[in-house]
Design a protein around this nucleic acid. Structure first.
Lengths: 105, 105
DNA sequence: TTAATATTTCCATATTATTAGAAATATGGA
DNA sequence: TCCATATTTCTAATAATATGGAAATATTAA
């Protein structure tokens, strides 16, 4: 992962509504939720939700599939794993056992 | 961790200079680096670096200790671990084995 | 006590993001 | 075909953030 991709992903998550959307989709993995259900759960107006979902999708954190009139969104597990890896890579100059407490990865 | 704390931490990391600072400190854990060494490594003007370090410290992602004229900064491992946990909590409604690929945590 | 070094604060400017109403698009059902 | 429903795009007002020069502060060495 390049630093610019990581910044894009972090910026996508650094907003309260989008973070709530992402966590809702993580908790509802792997089947995901339609846009309408997300809007209902989080009480967001449709245009606002659509804007945030687009931001998350462009950041590689959610994926989307059309289901008739509905659009289903899912958390992109590989995207969040790559981001976490980027944050924790090369911890302690390659000697992660030096970290107290140990870093998650 | 509360969602507002998570947003603060993510916003702190969602900026290219700050993300580079944080990763440099992770790689130089556990001993950390002085502000001057960080400025040198990343070619940042002192006021800009100071602003970013303050943002990271307020987000709980770095800690700081005065060493005479110098100020040493270290990555706050507990802070980043808490953030990663917040992003991955309750994955798949408590059945993380359903995730393919599996979420890091 | 004076000078040199390390870091932070102050500040003005420039840039970028968030919000939601109104309108547009797209799909499926009657 | 025509209508209802789901979602997105357009748009403009509002708000938040990044940048770095100049000055201030703090510590050490001479």
């Amino acid at each position: 992962m390049e630093i610019k991709n990581a910044v894009t992903a972090l910026a996508a998550l650094a907003q309260e509504s989008r973070l709530a959307i992402f966590r809702l989709l993580v908790q509802n993995a792997p089947e995901g939720l339609t846009a309408g259900l997300i809007a209902e759960q989080l009480a967001l107006p449709a245009p606002t939700l659509s804007f945030h979902l687009k931001t998350l999708a462009q950041a590689g954190l959610v994926n989307t599939v059309q289901e008739g009139r509905f659009v289903r969104y899912r958390a992109e597990i590989e995207g969040i794993n790559a981001l976490i890896g980027f944050l924790t890579d090369d911890c302690c100059g390659g000697h992660p056992e030096l970290c107290t407490p140990n870093l998650k990865k």
